[in-house]
């Protein structure tokens, strides 16, 4: 069952008097529960694609469908509501709210919107998430009192707070050392299994790419490879746009 579909998506940015084509006719599908890695070198269009899937940017042409809903037809209010209810975000620089504690940062998304859970329900869920990312002892600390790895754990817990269908992570390990990076990806994988949340993360680290069960490799704004690792292992080959490109 597809949860994200990109159909012939193009994205062009104005750059002075010229235009830069960041994404050139990308098409792929992501299934519910996938642990997806969007890989590629700098400038390949990873962040632009994540932004469009995350509904924080719009495609110049083509379709971006989330749960079969074309995001191009939604108003800003509807898109914001969609982001709140369906999507979670993990950022490279963690982007925690500095004036809130760990607990409050994780709780914050739950307080938005009209259908906020009750106080006790909210408290239990936030406690569970914080415990699951191993930060129970740090729940009353402010972000500036945490290490990079701990901050990213908070960001993961926050991204999962509203029980979103999809969690987007743009280079979540770029600011972390290799050991911490591995731990963060493993935590994301664990959450993916436990909560059946679809994780889509971008990276250019080859070690991390291979942890994903669905890899989409980009180059110069186009899909170079699109494959599921278990199918490769079973010898079924890539899902692939590279064949078409060939």
């Amino acid at each position: 069952m597809s949860i994200v579909q990109l159909v012939d998506v193009h994205k062009t940015y104005p750059l002075g008097k010229t235009e830069v084509q960041a994404v050139k006719g990308v098409t792929f599908t992501i299934e519910k529960g996938d642990f997806v890695s969007i890989a590629g070198p700098s400038g390949s269009g990873k962040s632009t694609i994540l932004n469009m899937i995350g509904c924080i940017d719009t495609a110049t042409s083509g379709q971006v469908l989330i749960n079969d809903v074309d995001t191009a037809g939604l108003t800003d209010r509807q898109i914001t509501k969609l982001r709140h209810e369906v999507l979670g975000f993990i950022f490279q620089s963690f982007n925690l709210i500095p004036v809130l504690s760990v607990f409050e940062n994780v709780e914050f998304p739950l307080l938005l919107g009209k259908d906020a859970p009750s106080r006790s329900e909210r408290y239990r869920w936030v406690e569970f998430l914080i415990e699951d990312v191993g930060l129970s002892k740090w729940k009353d600390h402010k972000p500036n009192e945490l290490s990079g790895g701990q901050r990213q754990r908070v960001a993961i817990a926050r991204a999962l707070a509203t029980k979103p269908s999809i969690v987007m992570a743009d280079e979540p390990t770029a600011n972390l050392d290799s050991v911490t990076s591995q731990a963060i990806i493993e935590l994301m994988k664990k959450m993916n299994r436990e909560l059946e949340t679809t994780f889509i993360f971008s990276t250019h680290d080859p070690d991390i790419i291979e942890i994903a069960d669905h890899v989409i490799k980009l180059h110069d704004g186009q899909v170079l490879e699109d494959y599921k690792t278990d199918e490769v292992e079973r010898g079924l080959g890539a899902l692939t746009q590279d064949k078409e490109m060939a």
Binding site: T80, H84, F89, N95
Partner: peptide, 16 residues
């Protein structure tokens, strides 16, 4: 600016 973008990404409406 970044914080505003983060809050918007998390689902805070413009009015928020």
């Amino acid at each position: 600016t970044v914080e505003i973008g983060t809050m918007r990404a998390m689902g805070v409406q413009r009015s928020g």
